[in-house]
Amino acid sequence: MDNSIWISILGFLATVVLAFTVGVFYGGFVRKITARIQNRIGPPVYQNFFDIVKLYSKKTAINHGWMQHLGPAFAITASVTSLMFIPVLNGQDWIWFENLNFKGDLIFLLYMMVFGSLGMALGAGQTGNPHSAIGVSRGLSQMVGYEIPWVLALVAIMMQAHTTSITGLLEYQNANGTWMMFESPLAFVAGLLAMLGMFHYAPFDVPFAPAELASGPASEFGGKYLALMMTSGSIFAFVKLVLFVDIFMGGASNLIMLVVKTFLLYMVPVLYGIVSPRYRTEQSIRYFWGWPTFIGVLGVLYVVFTR
């Protein structure tokens, strides 16, 4: 009994550290790649790591009240809790720490993943900064857009595998020896298009729009608040990537495969974003309710008629 508690704490720490490291360095790579495409030299890949460490060591200058104080805590709670429910590695002989993988399922995760944005939005709301409020209004509106193809994709694969749990989906893919992205390709495409919105890179960076909104919701957070929010953002990027790899690409059996798969996946929104301008909010919503939703509907029908 004693032993299992220590193992679960160790698992928690190891998973968080892994997610943090991978997420932060992916952020650095994105900055480097963006710079190279724009013909700049760009910051070194470990720049984000330095930024976060620097922010952690700084004292926080101002606050606007309790809700702002709690906003970053909400955000990190959501990303770390989501991380706990997602299987990071899925090997035959060696399994990464179990954490809470068998205690939740996809529909729970859908809701858990919004918890952070809502908490952060409330924190940003208390600052009274109109940029933050506009950013939140845009972000939530856009969320309604991309959640529709995303849910359609999830429904399609859940019907295909007859399970709603992530571990169940992994088992299904292992047992069939194929990846979900080949078994229901239309659902994969819909999910991928929804993912473009989920990562908030251009052309879907409406909530943060640096040129219009001065980073929107984050603009009043400094010091430790910003550090916690950047940490949470890095972990959350990792969570989304691993979730996608788990449910569509058969999971990863070791760390190298995990990095390869998530990195390739991450490049889709990044490379698409670098060469794109920004949509207006209503254009962005209508984009997601157009082709991605149509493909998602086809994906569901495909599963219904072929299984």
Partner: peptide, 18 residues
């Protein structure tokens, strides 16, 4: 967030923003 950190931060009104 709260230990030590909270007391050191200064409360500002909603007009004192970026």
């Amino acid at each position: 967030l709260s230990l030590k950190n909270r007391k050191k931060t200064r409360y500002v009104t909603t007009k004192d923003i970026h």
